[in-house]
Simulated scan of single mutants.
Amino acid sequence: MNALTRPAAPLAGAAFDHPEFDAHEQVVFAHDRDTGLMAILCVHDTRLGPALGGCRVWPYASAADALTDALRLSRGMTYKNALAGLDLGGGKAVIIADPRKDKTADLMRAFGHHVERMNGSYITAEDVGVSPADMEAVAERTDHVRGTARTGLGDPSPYTALGVFVGIRAALAHVYGSDTLAGRTVSVQGLGHVGFDLASQLHAAGAKLIVSDIHAPAVDRAVAAFGAIAVDPGEAHAVEADVFAPCALGAGLNATTIPAIRARIVAGAANNQLATPADGEALKARGILYAPDYAINAGGVISIALARPGGDDALVREKTLAIAATLTRIFERARAEDVTPERIADRMAEERLAAAGR
Rank of each mutant, 00 (worst) to 15 (best):
R308M: 09
G280D: 02
Y294F: 14
A298D: 02
G183E: 07
A275R: 13
A285D: 11
P246V: 10
R100C: 02
R75A: 14
D213V: 00
S157G: 03
H193F: 05
A260D: 12
G183T: 07
S157Y: 03
I265F: 11
K103V: 07
T180K: 03
T276F: 04
L249D: 04
D313V: 04
V145D: 04
I40Y: 00
E126V: 09
R221D: 01
D17G: 11
V27F: 11
A51I: 01
F165G: 01
E136S: 11
D213H: 00
V130P: 06
A149M: 03
S121Q: 13
G183N: 10
D213E: 02
K208W: 00
G120R: 11
A356W: 13
A285S: 13
I40C: 15
G54D: 04
V145M: 07
G76P: 06
C55K: 05
N81H: 13
T78C: 11
D69S: 06
A295N: 10
E25P: 00
S212Y: 09
D34C: 00
A263C: 09
G250T: 01
A64S: 13
G195F: 07
G152E: 05
A14R: 14
A269N: 06
R150A: 15
K101P: 00
K103A: 11
A295Y: 04
G112K: 01
R347S: 14
M118N: 05
A204D: 12
V301D: 02
A298N: 05
H144A: 11
P19V: 05
A325H: 12
I304M: 08
A3R: 13
A263E: 10
I302H: 10
A298R: 06
H113T: 15
P156T: 01
V316M: 12
V175S: 07
G234H: 09
M38V: 10
V188F: 06
L37K: 08
V43P: 02
T78L: 08
E126Y: 03
